[in-house]
Design a protein around this nucleic acid. Structure first.
Lengths: 181, 181
DNA sequence: TGCGCTCTTGAATGCCATACAAGATAACGG
DNA sequence: CCGTTATCTTGTATGGCATTCAAGAGCGCA
């Protein structure tokens, strides 16, 4: 009972923490956001954060998972759309987390936690894309390769500034080249 | 004369500095390499580096240019190769600088110098790829779009671990899908 | 009331990139 | 050959960073 109440409080506090961290990471970037800054925003001492998360990287992972669940929740809504629209949707979904995408790649070599998260993430995404492609009649091996390509294209578009027309042309070409018929 | 000698010494010193920095950046990563570490390796005081380069980012740019000229020097050797082989060559050429590729992307938002270098770099690379594609009979607009795609694929392959077979399949598919006939 | 658990903090550590002013060295003009 | 000047180097310092540790505050439970 009381134990339960405590656990609820913990969740609430973590939620508060992560949403603040997420906001700052997205606006100031990961490197531009110090633990002290997050703490100041929350009105607590800097080292308080370390009671909840063992490191800044683990806090980042928590934020990433948060963002991902939010995105995942919207996933059923695009079930019926054609491949190109699905990719456009993914792009738009990740656009606000653009900063974090490159941060994750940059920290891969330095943080085991990030590395694990990244691997899991790609497994998940690629599985989803493969599923879509196979549903559209693409053979399994080919679908796996195309899923990787599609991911690279989305990441490339996220990392580099580009025009609406460029994006449109790339997605269009990929959809046409990837799908049979 | 004497002035000239000084300038030669400057170049020599810079060369020494940049090769040391390059070695450390490539083995320890950009973030993992402190200015003090580079200085220690050279046997000078840390702030000495700041007489030659106004910031760590500018030193990185110097290193990047160094790596690029080295790569550029090998470029004529692949003039006659088919598209797929050219991309494989590019991948192999940049593989040792893999760390730096993600570093550049991560620092885009924080450093104007890096941003400028990155933009220039992409202009250069895409121009080269477009030239190749047009020579193979691809229409200009389409060549521009494919150059971007090709770049994204190379960057994706550099950033993510993959098997030889995966790389081969992706490059093969891209070459076939991109080129007419 | 007192014990123990959860949470918070003050204070410190050892890094980091970088700034500034004072020194050493060497070229140049007289 | 000597003094001025430009080039290069360093000692020292600053403010920031992620993270640690031990001490405290508040609360649940026996």
């Amino acid at each position: 009972m009381a134990k339960n109440k405590r656990e609820i409080d913990l969740k609430v506090k973590q939620e508060e923490l992560e949403s603040t961290a997420a906001r700052l990471f997205l606006t100031l970037g990961y490197d531009g956001t110090s633990m002290s800054r997050i703490a100041r925003e929350l009105g607590v001492a800097p080292n308080t954060l370390y009671w909840y998360y063992p490191s800044k990287d683990e806090l980042l992972v928590a934020v990433l998972n948060r963002q991902m669940s939010a995105t995942l929740a919207r996933l059923p809504g695009i079930a019926g759309l054609p491949l190109k629209d699905k990719m456009a949707w993914a792009l738009q979904a990740f656009e606000q987390s653009r900063e974090l995408v490159t941060t994750v790649h940059a920290r891969l070599e330095q943080s085991a936690v990030i590395r694990e998260w990244h691997e899991q993430f790609h497994h998940f995404v690629e599985a989803a894309v493969i599923h879509t492609l196979e549903a559209e009649g693409v053979a399994p091996a080919r679908a796996a390769m195309l899923a990787t390509v599609g991911t690279f294209l989305v990441e490339g578009l996220l990392a580099h500034p580009h025009s609406e027309a460029q994006r449109e042309a790339i997605l269009q070409w990929f959809a046409v080249s990837a799908l049979p018929d």
